[in-house]
Simulated scan of single mutants.
Amino acid sequence: MQGLKSVFDEMEGLEPVPGAILRRVKGEQAMIQHAIVAKGLSLPPHSHPNEQFTLVILGRLRLTVGHPGETTVYEIGPGDLLRLPGGVPHAIEALEDTVAVDVFAPPSEVTGLDAPRG
């Protein structure tokens, strides 16, 4: 079978916003995203129907998760994994330059980093 192996460092990165470089591999049931995010980058609250898992490799992220008035703040660093159920609002702030790996199921055309702003 061809096309089963991917190497993030050899892939062209997407830069949907200044300070974020994304590399993605989509499968039939899930998508994995390698994200390099600069300190200070933040995303306003957003949600998507996909379940999301975020694993921090280097750096630190602050995620505010939940509906207004019912939020919980999580700070995650190297080795920490956060599971975000589909449809749950979340905001993200990079406390340090960060490398993270996200898994989305099912696959998504866009994520919080490159979703249209309006």
Rank of each mutant, 00 (worst) to 15 (best):
T54M: 07
I92V: 14
E12Y: 10
H46L: 10
G112P: 00
V99G: 00
S47W: 09
L22E: 01
F8P: 01
L84V: 06
F8Y: 12
P49V: 13
P68S: 07
K39P: 05
L63C: 08
F53K: 06
P106G: 04
G77Q: 03
P68A: 09
V25H: 03
A91F: 00
V88G: 00
E10I: 09
K5Y: 14
P49S: 14
H34C: 11
G3E: 10
A20P: 01
T72W: 04
Q52M: 12
V73S: 12
A35W: 03
V110G: 08
G13H: 13
P45L: 06
F8M: 13
E10H: 14
P116G: 13
V56P: 00
V73E: 15
A35I: 03
A94T: 02
I57L: 15
H90T: 01
L22K: 01
I32P: 01
H46W: 14
E70D: 14
P18H: 12
V110R: 14
V88P: 00
K26G: 10
R23D: 07
V56Y: 02
E109W: 09
G19Y: 00
V88Y: 02
G13S: 15
R23N: 09
K26M: 13
I92E: 01
N50V: 10
A100N: 02
I32S: 03
E51L: 11
G66N: 05
E10S: 13
M11S: 09
L55W: 08
I76C: 04
G77M: 05
Q2L: 11
E15G: 05
I57G: 03
L61T: 02
D114T: 01
K39Y: 07
H34P: 04
E12W: 10
I21E: 12
V110Y: 13
G87D: 07
L61D: 01
M11C: 07
G3L: 06
S108N: 08
A105P: 00
L41R: 03
E75R: 07
G3V: 08
G13F: 12
L81C: 15
R60I: 06
G69E: 09
Q29R: 15
K26I: 06
E28P: 08
A115I: 11
G87C: 07
T72Y: 08
